[in-house]
Lab assay of single mutants.
Amino acid sequence: EINVTSHGEEQAKHWIELAKRMNLDVEVEIHGDKIIITIK
């Protein structure tokens, strides 16, 4: 399980695309200006 804290939408999209390509599950939480991505 990987937790990524992203401070930008572009960076977040990059991680989500990467996870989808690798067929991994992704959870995205938004806390103000921080985007927390959990890849399982």
Rank of each mutant, 00 (worst) to 15 (best):
E1F: 07
E1Q: 11
E1M: 13
E1N: 09
E1K: 10
I2G: 09
I2E: 08
I2F: 04
I2L: 08
I2S: 08
I2A: 07
I2K: 10
I2T: 11
N3E: 10
N3Y: 07
N3A: 07
N3G: 07
N3P: 09
N3W: 11
V4R: 06
V4D: 04
V4H: 06
V4F: 05
V4W: 04
T5V: 07
S6A: 14
S6P: 07
S6L: 14
S6E: 10
S6K: 09
G8N: 10
G8K: 07
G8F: 15
G8V: 14
G8Y: 14
E9S: 08
E9A: 10
E9Q: 08
E9M: 14
E9C: 15
E9H: 09
E10R: 03
E10K: 11
E10I: 08
E10P: 04
E10S: 10
E10Q: 10
E10D: 12
Q11V: 08
Q11K: 09
Q11I: 14
Q11P: 06
A12Y: 14
A12F: 13
A12Q: 04
A12L: 15
K13E: 12
K13F: 12
H14D: 12
H14R: 10
H14K: 07
H14L: 06
W15S: 06
W15Q: 13
W15D: 15
W15G: 13
W15H: 13
W15E: 15
I16A: 04
I16R: 04
E17D: 11
E17T: 02
E17Q: 02
E17A: 03
L18G: 03
L18Q: 04
L18A: 05
A19Q: 05
A19S: 03
A19K: 02
K20Q: 10
K20W: 14
K20I: 15
K20N: 10
K20T: 08
K20V: 15
K20D: 09
K20F: 15
R21P: 14
R21Q: 11
R21D: 13
M22Q: 03
M22E: 03
M22I: 14
M22T: 03
M22S: 03
N23I: 15
N23C: 14
N23H: 07
N23P: 04
N23R: 11
L24P: 01
L24T: 01
L24S: 02
L24Q: 01
D25Y: 15
D25V: 14
D25K: 11
D25I: 15
D25G: 04
D25N: 06
D25L: 10
V26T: 01
V26P: 00
V26Q: 00
V26R: 00
E27K: 11
E27W: 11
E27H: 12
E27S: 13
E27D: 07
E27F: 11
E27V: 13
E27L: 11
V28S: 01
V28Y: 03
V28E: 00
V28H: 01
V28F: 06
E29H: 09
E29Y: 06
E29Q: 12
I30G: 02
I30R: 03
I30Q: 02
H31N: 09
H31I: 12
H31F: 10
H31D: 05
G32D: 11
G32Q: 08
G32R: 07
G32N: 07
D33C: 15
D33N: 10
D33E: 09
D33V: 04
D33K: 09
D33Q: 05
K34M: 12
K34D: 02
K34S: 08
K34G: 03
I35H: 01
I35R: 00
I35S: 00
I35Y: 02
I35V: 05
I35W: 03
I35P: 00
I35Q: 01
I36H: 02
I36K: 04
I36M: 04
I37A: 01
I37V: 05
I37T: 00
I37W: 00
T38P: 00
T38D: 01
T38A: 02
T38C: 13
T38M: 04
T38Q: 03
T38S: 03
I39H: 01
I39Y: 01
I39F: 01
I39K: 01
I39D: 00
K40E: 03
K40L: 03
K40D: 02
K40C: 14
K40V: 04
